[in-house]
Design a protein around this nucleic acid. Structure first.
Length: 419
RNA sequence: GGAGGGAUACCGAAGCGGUCACAACGGGGCGGUCUUGAAAACCGUUAGAUGUCAAAGUCACGGGGGUUCGAAUCCCUCUCCCUCCGCCA
């Protein structure tokens, strides 16, 4: 949520930045609403002041035994006017709030300007892509041949875009979850295990609602949604709070649920795009001054998993046209996927500035005792299913077996996945 | 699911129709006096939103609605928490 006052003060600039991220919201009509609301508020507050004063007089007069009939009638008349005005104010506020709810965050000034993903900037390449002296297989074929992944059976019991992990496949998924959480808690993140269902307020707070309702699974006969990411639970743990202590760091495992409505037919094979997948999420809540620095840290912490797993990856900075709705600045981490012959997103690390904290009302007191909106950040650390896919493909051997990455040995209990 | 009890500032809690939200009283936090230092004691300080250059003002006692000239206080409703009973991993 943007600050309406900031929009009013910096209208022209904000129009340009919104165009840069391909958003064509009519800012002028929002400001018309805002001015109408301000006028109505001024009017009603004057009336309220008057009637409050007279009401206090009534109490005084009664004590003195004076007659209050006339004054009571006068206040009663004002009251009915106030009621009408209050109703129109409530309507204006609702309209303004819902208009603001659909306006995306303003990109940070450091974000490269671009129309779409072709404008993204590669900022770092890490590791060497594996060279195979045989024809490498895709992870779904490897998983099928090794009998560790089974989409057919999952389609049978649920539907498309689900997967069953079996034997060492299931063990690999679980090992990665534990390895990632262990690594992040060593780096100072507090581990959280939170509900997989949240209410609509939480979904609004982090920006999934109202605009992206179609992307979410809603639980029938309840007002609850299945979380699309643990970002929702971790960030909203502190909604409606004034925090005394900041620079909070959380990590959590959660299953994530997404409809993937707009991607029919894309990545339908394998683990890349599922309706349900596991993810370790990192969330930071910090002061306004430190969020830029914290974004670099959270990105580094997410990368550390890939470095320890010795998987080749690169980092790109998203340009204005490719930035997510709530984000002010985002680094995507992409892992090398031999079967795609390109890098595939495995983590997205974002600084949201005060966009989410305005929505979910997360504040802190600065050193002068003034309350301010906190800054929030998050990053995947990492998407587990895609990590499994990357390990299978990058660590495959000529004989169809998979070498287990060294750091996973204590978790896997074996150095090789074979039939 | 049944029956009760609650929700007030960082925490506990008073208030039960106008004098109690510039929120009593405790505790905590912060600052100070005293002390070699600490403890204790004493003194001071500590609270939302909106608005404004600053004020004034307006709003806020879990959320929403109602009664009243006036509601933290009365009524309705929703949410959440606690206790007991029932059911149940």
């Amino acid at each position: 949520m943007l600050d309406i006052k900031r929009i009013a003060e910096d209208k022209d600039n904000i129009k340009v930045t919104l165009l840069n991220r391909n958003c064509d919201v009519d800012i002028d009509s929002v400001l018309v609403l805002y001015n109408k609301l301000k006028d109505a508020l001024k009017k009603v507050e004057t009336l309220k002041e008057k009637s409050n004063k007279f009401s206090a007089d009534i109490a005084k007069f009664k004590k003195q035994g004076k007659d209050t009939k006339d004054i009571v009638k006068m206040v009663a008349d004002d009251k009915s006017n106030i009621k009408i005005l209050d109703q129109s104010i409530a309507e204006l506020e609702k309209e303004l709030k819902s208009a603001l709810a659909y306006i995306p965050n303003i990109p940070d000034s450091s974000v490269p300007i671009g129309k779409d993903e072709s404008g993204n900037v590669e900022v770092l390449v890490f590791g060497d892509k594996p060279k195979f002296d045989f024809s490498p297989k895709a992870h779904w074929d490897l998983g099928n041949d090794l009998k560790i992944l089974d989409q057919t059976t999952a389609a049978n019991i649920t539907g498309s875009r689900f997967c069953i992990y079996r034997g060492l496949g299931a063990r690999l998924e679980r090992s990665l979850i534990n390895f990632m959480l262990d690594t992040h808690t060593k780096n100072g993140y507090t581990e959280i295990f939170a509900p997989f269902m949240v209410n609509a307020d939480s979904m609004f707070g982090t920006g999934q609602l109202p605009k992206f309702e179609e992307d979410m699974f809603k639980v029938a006969s309840t007002d609850y949604y299945l979380v699309p990411t643990a970002e929702v639970t971790l960030t909203n743990m502190h909604s409606q709070q004034i925090l005394n202590q900041l620079n909070l760091s959380y990590c959590a495992y959660s299953a994530c649920f997404r409809k993937e409505g707009g991607s029919a037919g894309r990545d339908s094979r394998g683990l890349i795009r599922q309706h349900q997948f596991n993810k370790i999420e990192l969330v930071k809540i910090c002061t306004q001054e430190s969020s830029q620095e914290q974004l670099e840290i959270i990105t580094k912490d997410a990368q550390s998993i890939l470095q320890l797993l010795e998987l080749p990856y690169r980092i790109i900075e998203l340009c204005t046209g490719d930035l997510g709705f709530s984000s002010a600045k985002t680094y995507d981490i992409e892992v090398w996927m031999p079967s795609y012959n390109r890098y595939v997103e495995i983590s997205s690390c974002s600084n949201f500035g005060d966009f989410q904290s305005r929505r979910s009302n997360i504040k802190y007191r600065d050193s002068n005792g003034k309350t301010k909106f906190a800054h929030t950040l998050n990053g995947s650390g990492l998407a587990v299913g895609r990590t499994v896919a990357a390990i299978l493909e990058n660590y495959q051997q000529n004989d169809g077996t998979i070498t287990v990455p060294k750091v996973l040995l204590p978790y896997m209990g074996t150095d090789k996945i074979s039939l």
